[in-house]
């Protein structure tokens, strides 16, 4: 059932509506578990749109297998999704930096507070992101180290390729996930694909994981596929590679591939002079789980993240 969990009027004949589709068994029983699937906090991250569609479609096709509540929130920042804007239009604020929200600020801070109230109490929340337009990520779960012991067993059920326990921006204080975890509602952040794109196979992979974790929680009684055994960042060291020159990045390796120390990752080229400004080599051996997607770079732009760290 489609419901509006937060809403306010814009100046000219329009309302912002944060909507939730609640899928619940026809017969509700006490103690039924609840999972929340959230996406669209950043308007340029679209991978979650396919996941929401397909999740609802598959549940509707086998509704009798549903034994708990599934709340789907496809667009926390609907204006951003529609206007191709990562941030909240008008204010240019990052919605994932305004939780837990509250009074005395913009209408969006009020909305953030209402959203938190709506999700709190769920047995699990999955917040789906897709990096940004600059980077491509393999399907991965990100966890703040503060909550690792509680979240790791759940994260391993999500059929991700990789679990990164670290202080990435999506799990820091003032994010949705940190706020929910700090209030006792477990929240896993998924990062996969790239901004402004939908990678259907990543969506399918995550959907298998969502059904697996729903089965584990007792929300889904239907058949589920086996999940992969993900790499965990604590298995090795994450090495981050930045470029030092401005120009255009031309990669020489594939994303989600194993490389050795000294391998050529790519070049920063200069389209004006026909020269290579910088050659980038891997300082370690390992697996590339993040890869530059948007070619134009300036000094400091992130080129790749490698898990392994073995020299």
């Amino acid at each position: 059932m489609l419901e509006t969990v937060a809403s306010f009027a814009l100046p000219v004949g329009e309302r912002v509506n944060i909507k939730r589709n609640r899928l619940a068994p026809k017969e509700q029983a006490e103690g039924q578990k609840r999972i929340a699937v959230v996406t669209g906090i950043h308007g340029d991250e679209l991978e979650g749109q396919y996941v929401c569609y397909e999740l609802i479609r598959r549940i509707n096709r086998n509704y009798t297998e549903l034994n708990g509540i599934v709340d789907v929130y496809p667009a926390m920042n609907p204006l951003g999704v529609d206007a191709v804007n990562r941030h909240i239009p008008m204010y240019e604020l990052d919605m994932n930096r305004m939780f837990p929200g509250g009074e005395g600020g913009t209408p969006w801070e009020h909305v953030a507070g209402q959203v938190i109230d709506d999700i709190c109490g769920a047995d699990l929340c999955i917040d789906i992101h897709s990096s940004d337009i600059f980077l491509r990520e393999i399907p991965q779960v990100r966890i703040n180290p503060e909550y690792a012991s509680k979240l790791l067993p759940l994260a391993k059920q999500l059929n991700a390729d990789f679990i990164w326990v670290g202080n990435s921006s999506a799990v820091r204080p003032s994010s949705l996930s940190h706020t929910l975890n700090s209030r006792g509602t477990p929240c896993l952040v998924v990062e996969m694909g790239a901004g402004m794109r939908i990678t259907k196979e990543y969506g399918e992979q995550l959907l298998d994981g969502i059904f697996a974790v729903m089965a584990k929680l007792g929300i889904w009684t239907g058949r589920v596929k086996g999940v992969s055994n993900p790499m965990v960042s604590t298995d090795g060291e994450v090495t981050v590679i930045h470029c030092e020159k401005s120009g255009v990045f031309i990669p020489d390796i594939q994303h989600w591939t194993g490389i050795f120390e000294g391998d050529h990752i790519g070049d920063i080229i200069n389209a004006y002079t026909g020269e290579i400004e910088e050659e980038i080599f891997s300082p370690v051996s390992g697996t590339v789980f993040t890869m530059r997607e948007y070619p134009v770079v300036s000094p400091g732009s992130l080129i790749a993240r490698i898990l392994g760290g073995g020299r």
């Binding site: 990562r86 300036s298 000094p299 400091g300 732009s301």
Partner: peptide, 26 residues
């Protein structure tokens, strides 16, 4: 443009920064 010209990050939300990090952190 109010924030960083390429990725829209806010310098005044990036301190203490990182000299070997991303452009705004630098």
């Amino acid at each position: 443009k109010r924030f960083w010209s390429t990725d829209g990050r806010d310098i005044n939300r990036s301190f203490p920064g990182n000299a070997s990090g991303e452009p705004v952190q630098r």
